[in-house]
């Protein structure tokens, strides 16, 4: 933000409900429509052994544009469930002014915290992708901190254990999972809306008639040989309560199968579930998400602190086509 002085600022209409950090590109490259995978249904029983449940989520939002770049904000939330009580820590919001000039610097700062051992010269993504990328890096950094700073916890991630994308280098994610294992923690990565498909059906639609709580393990995923993508976790369909909601659940491959199932059972025994989704993770999402009111507040903060003049964004479609100028702004 330090580069931001006396510029004009065009607020954009914030899309508050589509700011998830899941990388859609990764899912598109992993359409699984061939092969012969197998299913294994695992009934679950809540395990009331006292265990701390931790969840991490990060949200980012685009606030507007300046003449030289983008204004964005990120916020993280960590929620614990411990002794029947939820505790949370919200970090942020942190507004950023990202320009072509500073994007590498911003990217490197985030990358260094999460991937200290990664190569020094990783090129920053394009300007429009920076918002998601720094959000993702902050999320991984917090996941790393929680994994390293806790012991014998169930750590809930929002997303999958898919690696090999620019967002999620395999080496870094492996390293993160190893740290987690060494501290006797278990990562349960929940994906609300997966694009993985089998036999032309969404993975989460492939539930059996057996009653919940239940995991359906999917074995032997065929992948394109050429793809750099790999799954670092075993993939399950988690149907944890009655109702229509089931989720893709990734659990670290390198922990024994029994421990994987036990981790989910501990989750059932220690956390509330709303529509089959852990309350801790739901709260993390709620606490990190930006409301429209907050977006206005942050825009005001930026305008006041950095002397920005708010100007209305020119809608080229509307300008060119008048009432026929529908669709997204050009």
């Amino acid at each position: 933000m330090k580069t931001l002085r006396s510029e004009r600022f065009r607020p954009v209409e914030a899309d508050l409900f589509n700011s998830e950090t899941e990388n859609h590109a990764q899912a598109k490259s992993t359409l699984l429509d061939y092969g012969s995978p197998s299913f294994h249904s695992i009934p679950l029983k809540p395990l009331p052994q006292p265990t701390t449940i931790t969840a991490i989520d990060v949200s980012n939002i685009r606030l507007g544009e300046t003449d030289t770049g983008l204004l964005t904000a990120i916020r993280a939330a960590v929620v614990w469930r411990q002794k029947r009580q939820y505790k949370y820590l919200r970090l942020g919001p942190f507004p950023f002014h990202i320009t072509e000039q500073n994007k590498q610097e911003v990217y490197d700062i985030f990358r260094q915290h999460y991937l200290p051992t990664s190569p020094k010269c990783l090129v920053a993504p394009s300007l429009p992708n920076m918002q998601n990328r720094i959000g993702n890096l902050l999320e991984r950094w917090l996941q790393m901190s929680m994994s390293a700073g806790s012991r014998d916890n169930i750590i809930l991630w929002d997303g999958s254990l898919t690696a090999g994308t620019p967002d999620n280098p395999t080496r870094a994610l492996l390293q993160l999972l190893e740290i987690t294992r060494n501290r006797l923690n278990t990562v349960l990565a929940f994906t609300k809306s997966t694009t993985l498909r089998l036999w032309n059906r969404r993975l989460t639609d492939l539930t059996t008639r057996t009653p919940p709580p239940r995991l359906i393990q999917i074995n032997r995923y065929p992948l394109h040989q050429s793809t750099p993508i790999c799954f670092l976790g075993n993939i399950y369909i988690a149907k944890l309560t009655n109702g229509s909601c089931s989720f893709r659940l990734d659990i670290d491959k390198n922990i024994p199968s029994a421990q994987r199932v036990a981790a989910v059972q501990k989750l059932l025994g220690n956390d509330l579930l709303f529509q089959g989704y852990p309350e801790t993770l739901r709260l993390a999402h709620i606490y990190s998400t930006f409301t429209a009111n907050e977006v206005l507040g942050i825009q005001r903060f930026i305008a006041q602190t950095y002397g920005l003049r708010v100007v209305t964004r020119l809608n080229l479609r509307r300008l060119l086509f008048g009432p026929y100028g529908k669709g997204p702004e050009a």
């Binding site: 939820y86 949370y88 820590l89 919200r90 919001p93 709260l283």
Partner: peptide, 9 residues
């Protein structure tokens, strides 16, 4: 539910 907001800015 209790918590803390780290609003540095």
């Amino acid at each position: 539910i209790c918590g803390e907001n780290l609003d540095l800015l």
